[in-house]
Nucleic acid binder design. Structure first.
Lengths: 258, 258
DNA sequence: CAGTGGTCTAGACCACATG
DNA sequence: ATGTGGTCTAGACCACTGG
C-alpha cells in the first residue's frame, strides 16, 4: 500500500490505483466529470485512503490523457466537496470524511464515533483567561468587567479533523477550570468538579458558511469549502449561563438530529 | 416563474455598474479573487440586483482586462457560494439570497420573512395520492398497502426560490387533503379541517449536501452548490405520525434556531 | 535544487436558447 | 443566425515546499 504514508516517499503514481488502470472517455459526459467520478470511486472503494497523497497534477493529467487544466477542474470539484485538500508546493491529499456521523443534541458526538470504531482525538489549541468583550458579556449575561475562559479545540476522527470549536465560560463560576481541564481534558468533568452535575441546552443555532483561510488550515481543507457553523448556550439547572460554544463542522461529515 | 423577469429590458452591460468603472489590479492578490471581490461588492451595494443579468462573459472579461478563463474562475466561485446562477445559452444572473432568515422550530419560516417585508410565494409542484413505498411505510409507521399523499413545493422570497420540499401524509388520516389544500394552499389548514388543531415535532434532522441537477433547476442554482437538507416528522397529540417532510435550503439563506 | 500546486494567456469548438 | 455559457487544448511563469 504505497500511498498510505505520504512521508515515506513513494507517491501514489507507483501505487496500484494508477497503474494499468483503464480510463475510457465517453463523449456524452464532460471529461472532468468522468475523472471526478473515477477518483471518487477510488476513494469509495478504499483504493485511495484518507491522508495519502495523489500523484502530481502533471502525472495525473498524463495518466488520464487530458490537459492539466481539465484535470484541475475535477480536483477542484472534489476539494469543494471536501474529498481532497491541496498544499502548495507539496501535493494533493485525500481528505475523505469518515462517512456521516449523527449528533443528537449537539453535545455527545464522540461517543457515537468511538462506538463506530473510529480513533477519536481532541487537541487543545487555546486555553486562557481574558476580559470578556461586549459579545461575551451579552451571550453569557455577565456583569461588566467579568473575566471568561476561552477554550479552542480541534477534534479528529481517524486522524482527519472534523470540527473546530471555541468555547467561553464565566471564570467566577468555574474558578478551577484550568487545573481540572489540564488533568481530564473534559469540559463535563470541569462542570462536575464545580458541583454542576446537570446542565441543559438553552439554545442551538445552525447556519452555513465557507471556510476562511484560518479555518481551512485547522480543518485541513481548501479555503472556501462549505461548512456548518453552530453556536449554542448551556446553562445550569438554575438557568445561569455557564457555556457559550461555537463550532465549524465538515458539511459532509455531520448529521444533526433533534 | 422563479427568476425575477430577466427578460425585461436592458442587460447590465448597459447598466451603470459596468460603465466607467475602475478596476486597478494589484499584484499581491489573484486576479480572479479581485474580480470576485469587485462583483460581490456590486451586489452588496445594490448596484447589481437579484434577478438581473450580467454582461456576457466575453464582455466582462474585456471589461476587467483578463482572459475569459480568469473571469470564469471568479464567476465559478460566486456560483458555488450561491451569489450567481448561469443558464446555458442565456446568461449569468444575480442570485443573491435575501440575507439570512431565522427558523425557530423548522415550521413557521415565512412569517418572519413576511415580517421583514419580503414577498413570499409558495408554488405547488406535485400533489397526488400514491401507494406508500417501503420508506414511506417506515417513516409514517403505516400498515402495508396504505396510501399516502405526496406534496412537493417551492417557496420563494422576493422572487428568489430558497426552499424546495417534499411531504408525505397518511391518506386515511387526511381524506380531504386535496380538496382543502386546493382551497387554502396551507398544510396547517388541512390539519385543522381534519380536527388536528395541535401537532408536535417528533424529530428533526439537518445535514449538508450538494445540489443535484434537478434540485439546482428548481432552486435556480448551479448543480453542485452546497445546501442544507432537512427532514422531519410531525405527529398529532396522540403520537400518531401525520407528516413526513424533507427539504433543501440555500446554505447561505437559512439560520436554524432551536 | 527539483517538484509541487496556483495562476494566467490565447486561442478553439460545442450545445444550447432566443429572436 | 446570433450570442450565450460549457468544455478543452497547449503552452507559460510564479511561489512555495522539501531535501
Amino acid at each position: 500500500m504505497g500511498i498510505a504514508s505520504p512521508d515515506k516517499g513513494a507517491v501514489a503514481s507507483s501505487a496500484p490505483a494508477f497503474e494499468d488502470f483503464v480510463f475510457v472517455p465517453r463523449s456524452d459526459i464532460p471529461l472532468w466529470r468522468q475523472i471526478y467520478n473515477h477518483l471518487v470511486q477510488l476513494i469509495d472503494d478504499g483504493r485511495l485512503i484518507p491522508g495519502s497523497r495523489l500523484p502530481g497534477e502533471v502525472h495525473l493529467a498524463e495518466a488520464f490523457g487530458v490537459t492539466r487544466i481539465t484535470l484541475r477542474r475535477a480536483l477542484q470539484q472534489m476539494q469543494q466537496e471536501g474529498h481532497l485538500t491541496s498544499r502548495k508546493g507539496v501535493g494533493v491529499f485525500v481528505r475523505s470524511p469518515p462517512s456521516v456521523l449523527s449528533v443528537r443534541d449537539g453535545s455527545r458526538f464522540f461517543e457515537s464515533l468511538r462506538a463506530d470504531g473510529k480513533i477519536v482525538d481532541t487537541a487543545t489549541l487555546v486555553l486562557e483567561e481574558e476580559d470578556a468583550d461586549a459579545f461575551a458579556l451579552e451571550q453569557l449575561k455577565l456583569a461588566e468587567g467579568s473575566k471568561v475562559i476561552r477554550l479552542c479545540r480541534v477534534r479528529s476522527a481517524d486522524g482527519q479533523p472534523i470540527q473546530i470549536s471555541t468555547k467561553l465560560f464565566p471564570l467566577h463560576v468555574l474558578p478551577d477550570f484550568a487545573t481540572v481541564y489540564a488533568r481530564r481534558q473534559s469540559v463535563t468533568d470541569v462542570f462536575v468538579a464545580h458541583g454542576i452535575a446537570k446542565y441543559r441546552r438553552l439554545e442551538t443555532r445552525i447556519s452555513g458558511g465557507f471556510a476562511t483561510a484560518d479555518e481551512a488550515k485547522k480543518l485541513a481543507l481548501t479555503p472556501g469549502t462549505p461548512l456548518f457553523r453552530t453556536s449554542s448556550i448551556n446553562c445550569d439547572d438554575k438557568g445561569h449561563r455557564i457555556e457559550w460554544s461555537s463550532g465549524c463542522w465538515l458539511l459532509t461529515s455531520v448529521d444533526f438530529a433533534f
